[in-house]
Design a protein around this nucleic acid. Structure first.
Lengths: 139, 139
DNA sequence: GTTCATGCAAATCGTTTGCACAATG
DNA sequence: CATTGTGCAAACGATTTGCATGAAC
């Protein structure tokens, strides 16, 4: 699943757990963007029997609670594109279709990244999320 | 790996193959963004013994040749983010670090997507690719 | 003929899930 | 005590890889 946020947010009555609290604390303590595996490494000292299942289940809960975000493109599998030219994408949150947009590519956006801080920008990508024409009609 | 394009592009002297030609043709014939599995389905009639290995190996070659693009965020695994506020990302093509940018989020970008065509935009994401300060310094 | 591509199967990797037991409210 | 969370291990789905054979140059 993608960053979604929709779906009748019927959380079950979450109970607190030491592990989940530590996961959240760890994520808040850093601005790198850790992976599940990194969390596991950091926490297995604290919880010697920690398991990946716990990490993933808690990540899921925290995302559902809106306390953290998950950076992942649309779905699990790679999508291919024979259109090699520069273009933006629209991703339908309903049917997961990915479509090319014929918008002008705003290279000027790249000027906003502070070169002063040492960034060297080569390119940028933009994805719009929402409902594609077909799904919008059905809504 | 991510959309990369770097790495000493020492292609071996690729030889042509019926399968690869058909894969490219298929990708060019559509503007949906097929998955490896979709290609497999379409082609197994034509090549009854086709294997997934062949699909993936050829996708890799086509990408290396710059003939197609692969849409995938940074890496294979999800990255987490405790920064829930709206922000853009910078992704280092060298060390794969993902960093939050403190740029203003340009919601006006979303107006460019032609609502006239029926798109309903909910949000958008921007990722800048290049060298992070650390890697830029070393270059 | 040497090199690259294929098919097949096994392997890998990140993630998910079923189950019995422990912790929470 | 009713329910949610944990650890463990097995299951999963997408992708990768080793190897013997077949096609390309």
């Amino acid at each position: 699943m993608a960053a979604n946020g929709k779906k009748s947010d019927k959380h079950p009555p979450y109970k607190r757990s030491k592990q989940r609290e530590r996961i959240l604390a760890l994520l808040r303590s850093t601005d790198t963007h850790p992976t599940a595996n990194w969390l596991f490494g950091k926490l297995k000292k604290e919880f010697p029997n920690l398991s990946m299942g716990t990490i993933y289940r808690n990540i899921g809960i925290l995302v559902r609670q809106g306390l953290i975000g998950r950076i992942a493109f649309g779905s699990t599998f790679d999508r291919l594109d024979a259109n090699v030219s520069d273009h933006y994408h629209f991703i339908c949150e309903k049917c997961n279709a990915i479509m090319d947009l014929k918008l002008p590519v705003v290279r000027d956006l790249e000027k906003q990244v502070p070169a002063s801080e040492g960034f060297k920008v080569h390119r940028h990508a933009v994805e719009f999320y929402g409902l594609c024409p077909k799904c919008a009609k059905k809504a």
